[in-house]
Design a protein around this nucleic acid. Structure first.
Lengths: 370, 370
DNA sequence: CTGAAAGCGCTTACAG
DNA sequence: CTGAAAGCGCTTACAG
């Protein structure tokens, strides 16, 4: 391999020595200051929309900046201002679509009002005993202005401790425990599960089964509560063997369905605590020639991308992941802008509204009720 | 709102004035130099694994760095070294799973051998006439060491021009045109489509339909070529009305299927140029009571996450998106490390191997051939 | 309302 | 093999 000349060098400012025009996007604050005939401090003020600049001066600087296509160098700003304009998104979520939605939500907020922030996505798929070290190292090299944590990572004590030790602002999405330890953004999983269960009941179903999520997942427990509340409200008591435990995987949905649909006395509707398990139920139903929704109604929870891919399309509850991440980033930016103290941030708990059930094709009235 | 004290300040080095120990992760190169009793330049050499340091000195510095939990500040390194340790991923892809896989692939490479690189994801969902400006602004604020472009964005001339003007290294994933303009990483779409078509033929199918991708999509054209090559090889000529045009959307797959499955003379197998359209075919088949694979075999292309969610699970061709993005990042890092020149990078064209067809349940022998 | 000076935490270029 | 000096492009803290 022929080692080429290293790609970068101190030559970027060569234009200055030669009295030339900087190439587009390569202008620095000094170029602008010289062109506008002011100090770099004044240029800095204008670029940051600070007060105490005469309108005339401001216009002059703006003009110069425009002519040179000047964009402040984020790296330099970061170093001088002790803030990185970077937010971290730490995740270990098995659901790519969930993480991606979080990322897009956070990015959307960072792009608002030219806030100049960016998001660094950090997959943390390491063994539990290496988690703390991985987080610490990540936070030490890149001095983030804040981090967003997604489940299930957000409930790992090692992670929280590493973040606290680094003194980095933190917002968690849908956390389960240690609720007073960081700010959080969440939705009302119980009310949402209640809504979708009620939708099943309103269609005429009385024999409704539920496939629960994993025991260590907070939202799963809340969804169970919501389900039971809706049932109770309708004077219904779920058949004990129609409450099955899953782990949010498609396979666990299949396993539960084999039992639920295997006996002679079958439920007319199934509420799966997430879409993935609902897809498992759907597969078993297809295999057994059980028609959805004619023979069996099926509801999920998440409104994941797969919900419109399967047949019939899945009736489910939309989890506002994008909005939650957007809000999480919003809180972090407020803190970074000095609009609240670290303690004020820590105390924040934002509940994001969710839309009503997304009614698609997998739920209908039970046979006999048309 | 009570404006709190701004979160950051010049106080981070307070420990030094007070002769104290810096808090974990807060140590600077100066702290390490003082503790090891060497100059900061020597610390820098050790941290960057540069030669010309006595073993004894090196050990001493390593020890000090370890004791202080020192991690070089990426921002400072960037500014001084004129490289950002940041790679951009520019995308406008409607497929979240595709983009996410790219991102994870690039990140995976950036995490190898402590390369200290990170990935910045930049969604560019702006109107065509604003694309150039958006790219230019993005590249000017964050001086990236390189960018990765995904389709269909990677084929927009405005984007390429903005990147060239900024002088940023670039690798495109699966580009279509201007092939000599940047480095690229791709797979052999034609050979892959040939493989999966052959799989259909080997099962005994002769009446095979294809749903093409959009006209302006390079890979789509290659997949068509591969399909036709496999058919020709088997002495088969596709029925003209069994070549339908789609646009990669589920809806377009549905539309094509309505026609393909609506007539009396139906194909026994359908090859959809991507999974999404295959899902559309599947929905129509279900609606019409056409059993897959008994009455109709169906193959997709991509191996997207949905392929295992639907029923029956989709036989498809795995697109090595993760690997392609990994390689793209790898090329960029090589360039950033001075292992090749800008011109050498531009000339690179890397073909990534793909596995054979992912055989699942949606393809079987045609009726009568068992 | 404006600017000169110092500094953020590193690397580069150079000298010895 | 090692270090003193200058500089990356900005912001902070202060003075006027």
């Amino acid at each position: 391999m022929t080692p080429g000349k290293p790609p970068y060098g101190r030559s970027a400012k060569g234009h200055r020595d030669r009295g030339e025009f900087p190439s587009p996007g390569a202008a620095t604050i000094n170029d602008v200051a010289r062109l506008a005939d002011v100090s770099i401090k004044t240029v800095s003020r204008v670029m940051n929309n600070e007060p105490n600049v005469r309108d005339e001066t401001r216009a002059k600087v703006r003009e110069a900046a425009k002519r040179l296509q000047y964009q402040p160098n984020l790296l330099a700003r970061s170093l001088a201002g002790s803030r990185s304009f970077l937010i971290g998104l730490l995740h270990d979520n098995p659901s790519a679509s969930y993480v991606f939605a979080c990322e897009m939500g956070a990015i959307a907020r960072c792009k608002e009002n030219h806030s100049r922030y960016h998001v660094l996505s950090e997959p943390l798929n390491v063994r539990g005993d290496q988690l703390r070290g991985a987080v610490t190292e990540f936070l030490a090299t890149v001095r983030l202005d804040g981090v967003i944590l997604t489940p299930p990572l957000c409930d790992k004590v090692d992670v929280l401790e590493a973040i606290e030790a680094a003194g980095v602002a933190c917002v968690r999405i849908a956390p389960w425990g240690s609720l007073d330890r960081t700010a959080r953004v969440h939705m009302d999983d119980a009310a949402a599960a209640e809504d979708i269960t009620r939708h099943l009941i309103n269609q005429g179903h009385r024999d409704i089964a539920i496939i629960l999520g994993p025991l260590d997942h907070g939202a799963a427990a809340l969804r169970e509560q919501g389900f039971l509340a809706a049932m109770r409200e309708a004077g219904l008591e779920p058949h004990p063997s129609w409450i099955r435990r899953g782990d949010f995987s498609l396979e666990s949905g299949r396993a539960a369905a084999e039992i639920l649909l295997g006996g002679s006395h079958r439920p007319t509707a199934v509420f799966a605590s997430n879409d993935e398990m609902a897809f498992g139920v759907m597969a078993v139903a297809h295999e057994r020639g059980i028609s959805i929704p004619d023979d069996l109604s099926l509801a999920g929870f998440d409104d994941s991308p797969g919900a419109v891919l399967v047949w019939p399309q899945l009736t489910t509850l939309h989890q506002p992941v994008h909005e939650m991440a957007f809000k999480a980033a919003d809180l972090l930016l407020s803190r970074a802008n000095g609009e609240m103290t670290a303690d004020e941030l820590r105390g924040r708990s934002e509940k994001i509204a969710y839309p009503g059930p997304v009614v698609r094709a997998s739920v209908g009235p039970p046979r006999g009720i048309a």
